[in-house]
């Protein structure tokens, strides 16, 4: 795969600033078009203009304690599922990738499990864990853990034998080798896994939330959809989108802060790696 940086030459900064302005103009244009469409053309039972959605966000969403509570529960579910998947995913990944043999024995099993469409297990997950947050955490966890394991294992593979030998010949202890050679090498791949893990974690939690339609966010989306009340429905979906964006941003900021300087340039962002 080629890199995104190849298109940015020496005048990259100016070009990207211009692109940014054009992007803003485009977004403002789309919002204006939707406003016009919503006000004068669309069926009011199916579509709301952006201004009404914003208004609905403050009155119907933030004004309703039950919905605010449902959104908070959603945030907690996403966070808990993510922390669990990092802890168990990284541990499993380190164990699987520990030696070439364990990798050959266990990695294909992980890949095989990853291929199964997990959404077919959604009703079963609810049956096993009930209608509460536990089921949503479990479903987010089972989505997020696989990309984390896979990228930890592939990250460990990228550590060069040469560097390990060099560290050893200079008298580094096992702990020193892990701390100063293995971990810094793993970081870019680890964060690829963490980014992907967050995307799938959000997917899992929200799927489970939407499936359980007698409480939480799923109840309200169904309520507004069945009442043909698009204002609050769009506002609720928008709120969840903002929550999702915030979680993605936290991971991205952590990635930028924690990636060792030397590796920063090698993080190649390609569309293909965003979702496997």
């Amino acid at each position: 795969m080629s890199t995104a940086s190849s298109t940015l030459g020496s005048s990259g900064a100016a070009t990207s600033r211009r692109a940014f302005h054009l992007r803003m103009i485009l977004i403002v244009g789309i919002v204006a078009a939707l406003e016009f469409y919503g006000r004068f053309v669309a069926d009011a039972t199916l579509f709301s203009p952006p201004s009404k959605i914003v208004q609905s966000f403050f009155t119907d969403i933030m004004g309703d304690a039950r919905i605010v509570r449902a959104l908070w529960i959603c945030i907690v579910e996403i966070a808990v599922a993510y922390v669990l998947s990092i802890v168990f995913g990284v541990t499993t990944g380190l164990l699987v990738g520990a030696t070439p043999f364990t990798r050959r024995a266990f990695f294909p099993v992980v890949i095989a499990l990853y291929v199964i469409p997990q959404v077919s297990f959604l009703p079963l997950t609810i049956l096993l864990f009930g209608l509460g947050p536990a089921a949503k955490i479990a479903f987010g966890f089972s989505h997020a853990i696989f990309p984390i394991i896979i990228n930890v294992v592939s990250g460990m593979r990228t550590v060069r034998e040469l560097h390990l030998n060099a560290a050893r010949s200079m008298g580094a202890s096992r702990l020193d080798t892990i701390r100063h050679v293995v971990l810094p090498h793993m970081v870019p791949s680890l964060f690829t896994g963490l980014r992907l893990g967050m995307t799938l974690n959000l997917l899992g939690v929200i799927l489970a939330e939407l499936y359980v339609s007698n409480s939480g966010v799923g109840f309200f989306t169904r309520l507004f959809a069945e009442d043909f009340n698009p204002g609050p429905l769009f506002a609720l979906i928008g709120s969840l989108a903002i929550i999702a964006i915030a979680f993605n941003e936290i991971v991205r900021i952590a990635e930028r802060r924690l990636t060792p300087g030397a590796h920063r340039k090698t993080i190649i962002k390609t569309a293909g790696k965003e979702k496997q």
Binding site: L210, L240, A241, A244, I245, N248
Partner: peptide, 10 residues
């Protein structure tokens, strides 16, 4: 694409 588009299902 980083937003879970599942949100659009309703």
């Amino acid at each position: 694409f980083t937003i879970p588009l599942t949100l659009l299902l309703p």
